[in-house]
């Protein structure tokens, strides 16, 4: 078993019409043993900028803390909010600095640009190779299931309600075919004037 699968977890980001969504499961485990049912891997970086961290739990915190440190310094220096694109470069840079002893996370950025409110979405591998996406990004132990579901369910220009339904169905169905993710989920819908956060019940077995 890979170290990326040590704690388990699943994440998706999805683009809709003038809105984006990010969803995470809530399980934290040590290999097959479930330890916590309230472990979300999604963090708010700025009002319209969210990041999700699938991977090894310790590196989720470590990378998040390091990113926040650099992002705060950037914002103090520039006296403006960081754009999602610059944030992606910043994360990619941090990960590539550790090219030969990497952090075991594959971060995803799901955001509306803080100025233009343009949707932005990308994910990257553990050494920071950025993959920009116009439809969806997936990560975690059930990423192959998630790809299949997103491929089948996603369609362009979804409104917030439809986007919520699609992202939730994709996450829940993928988690049901993965033993080490699931146990509840949390969905964030990011719109220009509001953020909607919903907890979803899933199978608990």
């Amino acid at each position: 078993m890979s170290i990326m699968d040590y704690n388990g977890g699943a994440l998706i980001g999805m683009k809709g019409k003038d809105c984006v969504a990010i969803a995470t499961d809530k399980r934290f485990g040590i290999q097959a043993q479930t330890v916590s049912l309230d472990f979300t891997k999604v963090f708010q970086i700025n009002p319209h900028t969210y990041m999700g961290f699938p991977g090894l739990a310790t590196d989720i915190f470590t990378v998040y803390e390091k990113i926040m440190f650099r992002k705060r310094l950037y914002e103090l220096k520039e006296n403006r909010k960081i754009s999602p694109k610059a944030l992606a470069s910043m994360v990619s840079n941090l990960l590539y600095e550790n090219r030969f002893s990497p952090f075991f996370v594959e971060p995803m950025i799901v955001a509306l640009d803080e100025v233009t409110l343009e949707p932005y979405m990308c994910d990257m591998d553990l050494i920071g190779c950025v993959n920009k996406s116009d439809n969806f990004v997936v990560g975690g132990t059930s990423s192959s299931q998630l790809y299949g579901l997103c491929e089948a369910l996603w369609e362009p220009d979804m409104e917030e309600d439809q986007l919520f339904e699609t992202i939730s169905q994709a996450l829940v169905s993928a988690c049901n075919r993965d033993a080490i993710s699931g146990w509840g989920a949390k969905v964030y819908i990011i719109k220009k004037d509001k953020i909607i956060v919903r907890d979803i019940k899933t199978r608990m077995d």
Binding site: F28, I30, V35, F39, L56, F61, T62
Partner: peptide, 11 residues
């Protein structure tokens, strides 16, 4: 709950 890897969970 904190393990030797540094994973911290509120339980």
């Amino acid at each position: 709950f904190i393990d030797y890897l540094g994973a911290q969970v509120d339980v």
